[in-house]
């Protein structure tokens, strides 16, 4: 079994998709809440005209977290012509529904309304946009915000999803390459969860990592079409470290900045501390060193041990260097695939 096969198995273990069984209950709750929100908004004169999932579920880069809850990032959209001038008005409607359904910690935050489900490992973030044509504006403001801090702020949530999912720039096996990029995102997020304390880890935002990986992604597929996730991750991390994401802050410290590629083009890490930037920079360099070590290692078992040190126990290490026993047959997960083959 090749190292790539080990990466593939690791990926299968950590990935989480909207259709996964593990997510079934969360999906059901999300649907129920959404139904109630539709009714509530309609009654209030702000009918929901669109709704979509955003965040890592929408970009297929979600992973299982060893401790934390499942997240749902639900966006709801109302018509700009019907929207109240004060965005907190509609956010209160969301808060009302969440409180009514017995969520704990229901809270209006600046960009969203957030809550935890009482008896489930389920965390929910609901954001509200108003839409005019193809322009979106995000409802910003807290209950305590002054009127000037309660604003509809320009945003492009769907363009962001499109940017991350876009594979047009890849020539040849574009699907294979976008899938490799997404595996790298999942690997890196699991590495973050393993290597950062819970407090700093939460500050290393997934969207920031995802955008760095997207912009710096180096595919590794050999001329025969064989993919190599280790090499790709190594090359991509090296590209990130050498890019302009980290600014010298003196005394071996760094500030990190990743600019959102869509409106409002803000720095995702604008409010992050120097400590977060420094830790991220240093840990990425350590990650790079370890990946180089794994690449230079000839023993598959030792390679896996190094990678387990980076990604945790979900990255399995074979008991023996090579097994003489018959390999278990792994079948394709697809039922049918369209081919171009003829004769």
């Amino acid at each position: 079994m090749s190292l790539q096969n080990r990466f593939s198995k690791f990926h299968d273990k950590i990935k989480l998709g909207q259709e996964d069984d593990a997510y079934r209950e969360a999906r059901s709750k999300d649907q129920n809440i959404l139904d109630e929100l539709r009714t509530e908004f309609r009654s209030a004169g702000f009918p929901i005209i669109d709704t979509f999932i955003q965040g890592s579920l929408s970009t297929h880069t979600c992973i299982k977290h060893p401790i934390d809850d499942f997240d749902i990032d639900r966006a709801i959209v109302i018509d700009a012509d019907n929207a109240p001038d004060d965005p907190v008005v509609v956010k209160k409607l969301v808060l009302k529904i969440l409180e009514k359904r017995g969520f704990k910690n229901a809270l209006i935050k600046k960009p969203c309304v957030t809550a935890d489900y009482m008896n489930l490992n389920l965390h929910i973030d609901i954001v509200i946009y108003r839409q005019r044509g193809d322009q979106y504006e995000l409802a910003v403001g807290k209950l305590t915000s002054s009127s000037e801090n309660r604003v509809w702020s320009s945003a492009e949530p769907k363009k962001l999803i499109e940017h991350i999912n876009n594979s047009n720039q890849y020539i040849g096996s574009a699907d294979l390459k976008i899938q490799q990029f997404k595996r790298l995102v999942r690997f890196t997020k699991r590495w973050r969860d393993e290597k950062f304390g819970q407090y700093v880890g939460k500050k290393v935002f997934s969207i920031g990592l995802t955008l760095m990986l997207k912009d710096s992604y180096c595919p590794s597929i050999n001329d025969d079409g064989k993919v190599n996730d280790l090499q790709s991750l190594r090359d991509t991390v090296a590209a990130i470290v050498n890019a302009n994401y980290f600014q010298w802050a003196g005394d071996a410290k760094y500030k990190v900045s990743v600019i959102l590629p869509v409106s409002p083009y803000r720095n995702i890490y604008e409010n992050s501390s120097v400590d977060t930037g420094t830790q991220l920079y240093n840990k990425l360099n350590t990650l790079l060193t370890k990946l180089d070590l794994a690449i230079s290692e000839v023993s598959l078992k030792k390679q896996c041990e190094i990678l387990q040190g980076l990604f945790g126990d979900d990255f399995e290490v074979p008991e023996k260097e090579s097994s003489n026993s018959a390999r278990k047959v792994a079948y394709s997960s697809a039922g049918v695939v369209g081919t171009s083959q003829g004769a």
Partner: peptide, 9 residues
């Protein structure tokens, strides 16, 4: 070439 499993194409 991605997963090492038996593929269909």
């Amino acid at each position: 070439q991605e997963s090492g499993a038996r593929g269909l194409v």
